[in-house]
Simulated scan of single mutants.
Amino acid sequence: MSAPVITLTGVGIRFRRNRRGRRSFKDLFAARGRRIRPNEFWALRNVSFTVQHGEAIGVVGRNGQGKSTLLKLVTGVVLPDEGAVRVTEGVAPLIEITGGFVDDLTVRENVYLTAGLHGMTKKQIAERFDEIIDFAEIADFVDTPYKHLSSGMKVRIAFAVISRLEEPILLVDEVLAVGDKAFREKCYRRIEELLAGGRTLFFVSHNERDLKRFCTRGLYLDKGALVLDAPITDVLALYNSQYGIKPA
């Protein structure tokens, strides 16, 4: 078996309840190995797993159990307070609708900015620009400031850009729930194309049908702990049984 593309070893990360915003590097390094304080909590604790290239992982759990934090660790947006995260391939994250987009820039400018930040050259972006706009179905709003788009339109352009990146790992965190049903299905077909092409997928969702559609393996998080790493059907069965949820 080839080396994993993602490895988490004994990972833990804590946050303060009375402080907003991202912690500084000074805070992160000062906190390592320190006893947790009353106003702090572990968002994740002692989480370990590996992911092979081409796997499709569904991340399951109630709100506030560490799912989004886990994806942010994989992207490098946040750093662990303990343990280690190793990612050997590039990541295309669709975690927050507004992530990477600037309100006062136009859609066109944001496409060039966001794709450029993810490593695409200006020439590559120009070659794919029409394809991105056509997929998002917002040709009439190309020169409109991003802040004037509806939440659904923001999802469309974000997914259109991120799904055109060549990064081997795709992270999707619930954001498609904002889009309309027809466009959501269009995005799902695109995800299937990427999976068929060998991409690795992390998919956070509360929709059991979607999880079964894309994912063969599941990670069940509860109170910041990895409760189960198993086939997605087994993970969903345990989650449903613990919370009295009728299977989809």
Rank of each mutant, 00 (worst) to 15 (best):
residue 14 R to M: 06
residue 232 I to K: 08
residue 231 P to I: 09
residue 136 A to G: 05
residue 92 A to V: 01
residue 238 L to C: 02
residue 138 I to Y: 07
residue 217 R to H: 12
residue 76 G to V: 01
residue 163 S to M: 15
residue 228 L to N: 05
residue 117 L to A: 10
residue 176 L to R: 01
residue 153 M to G: 01
residue 163 S to G: 00
residue 198 G to P: 05
residue 233 T to N: 15
residue 203 F to E: 05
residue 130 D to P: 03
residue 97 I to V: 15
residue 241 S to E: 14
residue 64 G to N: 10
residue 218 G to H: 05
residue 105 L to N: 03
residue 183 F to P: 03
residue 1 M to C: 03
residue 75 T to D: 05
residue 154 K to A: 04
residue 53 H to K: 15
residue 243 Y to N: 13
residue 187 C to A: 13
residue 144 T to L: 12
residue 17 R to H: 11
residue 13 I to C: 08
residue 144 T to M: 12
residue 121 T to V: 09
residue 131 E to S: 15
residue 222 D to W: 10
residue 53 H to F: 02
residue 238 L to R: 15
residue 99 G to I: 00
residue 157 I to F: 06
residue 46 N to M: 07
residue 30 A to R: 14
residue 173 D to W: 10
residue 95 I to R: 03
residue 20 R to S: 14
residue 216 T to R: 15
residue 93 P to D: 04
residue 87 V to I: 11
residue 80 P to Y: 02
residue 95 I to K: 07
residue 121 T to P: 12
residue 171 L to H: 08
residue 236 L to M: 13
residue 129 F to K: 09
residue 59 V to Y: 09
residue 154 K to L: 04
residue 246 K to S: 11
residue 109 E to D: 14
residue 176 L to I: 08
residue 105 L to F: 15
residue 9 T to S: 15
residue 186 K to V: 06
residue 19 R to I: 12
residue 209 R to H: 02
residue 152 G to M: 10
residue 48 S to T: 10
residue 65 Q to N: 14
residue 222 D to P: 01
residue 212 K to A: 10
residue 151 S to H: 09
residue 73 L to H: 03
residue 95 I to M: 08
residue 144 T to Y: 14
residue 82 E to I: 07
residue 124 Q to D: 14
residue 178 V to H: 01
residue 146 Y to Q: 03
residue 226 L to W: 04
residue 116 G to T: 00
residue 75 T to F: 08
